[in-house]
């Protein structure tokens, strides 16, 4: 298939992606196609390389081999901010927010980037109506309007996770990577997070790392299983949970704990 940039049925295509730290291989020859508009989960036991995979896609680490295409265009070797401008945003496993700035400002930084006002030096930001309105809209979407003027560092854990998701929305990216968005949440908080993720990923492509199979079941169209740096299988959640090899890989890991 020829991938004309901007005209690909796949939002994200990984081909032969390989990463080694020193002589230790972490990701080995991974092929993965994420269709435009689908919600896709990557699951796998601890240490399988899920976060590394995200770090490769988002440009935090350089690839050791292979290629990654975003909307048909190769993003291998690009810096994180270039990849972001091409339409890919990510969240982090550990809350990665601006702790000493207000919740509103956390989101506004991203909104400004989306509008290309990156190095604006000649107008006060408080007078940029459109920017502030858009920020308010995202605040409302992630349910943090009441906390707008509190310091992000003072939010509760699940509020920080919601802010984290909000920040991935601000830049207007249509491919969103969420790294364990519900980790460490109570059952109630998880349910709310699932709702939030579902609404905000409407019309976008979502790739997420998730441990909790119930989250995967209620959200995702397809699932890939990553074990020891290899993709073991990619299928619908139902088919994956019936998959013998997956069960072995997973149960083996569970039994170890």
């Amino acid at each position: 298939m020829t991938d004309a940039p901007g005209n690909s049925p796949y939002s994200l295509r990984l081909s032969g992606v390989t990463k080694a730290f020193g002589s230790i291989p972490v990701i080995q020859d991974v092929d993965l196609d994420i269709r435009a508009g689908e919600r896709h989960a990557v699951i796998g036991p601890n240490g399988a390389g899920k976060s590394t995979l995200f770090n490769l896609i988002s440009g935090l680490f350089p690839l050791s081999g292979g290629d990654i295409r975003l909307h048909g265009r190769s993003i291998a070797g690009l810096s994180p901010h270039r990849i972001n401008r091409l339409g890919l945003a990510r969240s982090f496993q550990i809350s990665n927010i601006f702790h000493r700035m207000s919740v509103f400002e956390n989101l506004r930084i991203g909104v400004l980037a989306r509008h290309g006002i990156r190095f604006g030096l000649f107008r006060p930001v408080d007078r940029m109506r459109r920017i502030n309105d858009e920020t308010d809209a995202i605040l409302a979407r992630v349910g943090l309007t009441a906390r707008a003027h509190d310091l992000a560092g003072d939010l509760t854990y699940s509020e920080q996770r919601a802010l984290e998701i909000g920040m991935t929305l601000t830049t207007g990216a249509d491919v969103i990577l969420l790294d364990e968005p519900t980790a460490g949440m109570s059952r109630e908080e998880t349910a709310r997070a699932i709702d939030l993720i579902r609404t905000v990923s409407e019309g976008k492509t979502l790739l997420m790392v998730e441990h909790d199979m119930s989250v995967v079941f209620s959200l995702c169209d397809r699932v890939s299983v990553l074990v020891y740096g290899n993709i073991l299988a990619t299928d619908t959640p139902a088919a994956i949970s019936a998959n013998r090899a997956v069960q072995e890989a997973y149960l083996g890991e569970e039994a170890d704990i």
């Binding site: 988002s58 935090l60 810096s79 994180p80 901010h81 972001n84 401008r85 945003a89 990510r90 982090f92 990665n96 927010i97 601006f98 702790h99 000493r100 700035m101 400002e105 506004r108 930084i109 991203g110 400004l112 980037a113 989306r114 006002i117 990156r118 190095f119 604006g120 030096l121 000649f122 107008r123 006060p124 930001v125 408080d126 940029m128 920017i131 920040m167 601000t170 830049t171």
Partner: peptide, 26 residues
């Protein structure tokens, strides 16, 4: 300067440079 978008970005750099990069800033 502190009231401009870049002034706010300056504070963001202090707080979390990595996040700034993943929001599309060089």
């Amino acid at each position: 300067y502190t009231r401009t978008p870049f002034g706010r970005l300056t504070l963001a750099l202090r707080d979390n440079e990595q996040r700034v990069r993943f929001l599309g800033y060089d």
